[in-house]
Amino acid sequence: MSTETTRGRPAVALGTGTTVLTFVTVQLLAFAFAFTVELPGAYALFAVASTGAVAYHRDRGAFGVAAATFGSVLLVALALPLLMLVARQDPGIVVEKALDPAVHRALYLSVYAPMLAALLSVALGVPLALVLARGFPGQALVESLVDLPLVVPHSVAGLAVLFAYGDEGAFGWLEVSIPGAFTLLGVPVDVPLFDGFHYDFSVIGTTTGMVLAMTFVSAPFAVNAAREGFEAVDERVQRAARTLGANRWETFRRVTAPLSVRGVLTGGVLAWARAVSEFGAVAIVAYNVDVVYPPLFGERSETQHAPVFIYREFMTGGLDESGAVATLLLALSVAIFLVVRSLAYDDGGWP
């Protein structure tokens, strides 16, 4: 640690990580004190004032101090409800819900289904994002169509998915059935440990319908983030690769993809986060879903997507029950979000 003088006042040069940890610790202690004395509004004022003081101490100038102070107002407006949510929970009820198998099933479904929706959004959205980044006639119409789910009310999104993919929709006719014992070219065939397979494409009350509803509302995030990543790649670098003999695929794999991978990853993370938070569309398409939990070795039982589950808990058990489950979902989402960001946004190169 070293010290230096800035405009006549001493300044302590701390590492970035130490500075952030110190600031966060002070904020949490201040909130705990304000919550204890039942003055959460005082903490809001302290958070805004302390942010401005830090900006002044770091010599950001009048404009920087003003920007940090006014920006912190929005941060406090976002953070304070979450802090109050966690602080007002009864630890006993939270532990009780954490041990409840019904909550386990809801949380598992709320990680598993959004992950499938995010993977589907990225897998299909990246090619579209690449085309949009390069431009084509009528691009404005396609971009409007991609962004339309962002403004469609959630209940309307659920109804749209039902009309498109329901029993009388695009794939209502799809049905696959494979018996466990059958005849092939006149020879009886009996597959050991296999009782047969039957799949009827249905969206109402199924994981398939839930994933489709989540993909509908989350795909724009994957497409737009990936497109911005592709647009940020310098065209001169790509032309240089083509000049050196690389074909389009090699240029994409060796140049475009590595330079835009952060945008693609950001789109996937945002799509997953959006899918986790979806309520309206999922409530209409798949309010109750049968899942196997624990995965592969468990029994099939009925559960709900966590936001739907929390709403049901609120209607039946009130704030205490629903708040405890909401706290568990918040903790799980934050943990997964931090792990994904730490793994995806390291300094490693393109595989």
Rank of each mutant, 00 (worst) to 15 (best):
A225S: 15
Q139H: 11
F163R: 10
V131C: 03
Y199E: 00
Y112K: 12
A222T: 11
A113Q: 07
V156L: 14
H198M: 02
A140P: 04
V111L: 11
P127C: 10
H104K: 05
A117T: 02
V203W: 05
V131T: 05
F197I: 00
W173K: 06
A129E: 01
A164L: 12
S144K: 15
W173N: 06
L150P: 10
F230L: 11
L174Y: 08
A113F: 08
A140Y: 05
Y165V: 13
V203I: 13
Y165A: 15
L119M: 12
V126Y: 03
V142W: 08
V111I: 06
S121M: 05
L159Y: 12
D190S: 08
L132P: 08
P137K: 03
A219F: 13
A157H: 01
D167K: 13
T215I: 13
S155M: 15
D195I: 00
S144M: 13
L145I: 15
H154R: 04
E143K: 15
V126E: 04
F201P: 02
A118Q: 02
Y199Q: 02
A222K: 09
G186N: 06
G205E: 10
I204P: 01
S218T: 09
V187P: 01
L128M: 11
F163K: 07
E168L: 12
G209M: 04
G166H: 09
L120Y: 03
M214W: 06
V122L: 10
A225W: 02
V191I: 12
V211T: 04
D200R: 14
S110L: 07
F163Y: 12
G229K: 06
L212R: 01
V152T: 11
L124Y: 10
R105M: 10
L128N: 04
G125F: 06
Y165G: 04
L116C: 11
A106Y: 06
V146S: 10
Y165H: 10
P188N: 02
L130C: 05
Q139F: 07
T215Y: 13
S202R: 14
P188Q: 03
F216N: 01
G166P: 07
V161H: 03
V203A: 09
L132W: 08
P114Q: 05
D195F: 00
T215G: 15
A133V: 08
H104N: 10
G169V: 08
H104S: 12
V176F: 12
L159Q: 06
G209P: 03
V111H: 00
G205P: 08
L124C: 14
M214L: 11
E175N: 13
F163T: 12
A157T: 05
E175L: 10
D167A: 14
R105K: 11
T183E: 13
L120G: 11
L128C: 07
G169S: 09
L120I: 09
T183F: 04
Y112E: 15
V151L: 15
D190G: 00
D167S: 12
F197L: 04
Y108G: 10
V152S: 05
S218A: 15
P127M: 06
L130Y: 12
H198C: 01
L109F: 12
A133C: 08
L150I: 15
I204A: 14
A117H: 02
V203Y: 08
L119V: 14
R105D: 05
V151D: 12
F163C: 07
Y108L: 07
G196N: 00
S202P: 00
Y199L: 06
P127K: 06
A113W: 04
G205F: 09
P137G: 03
W173G: 07
T206P: 06
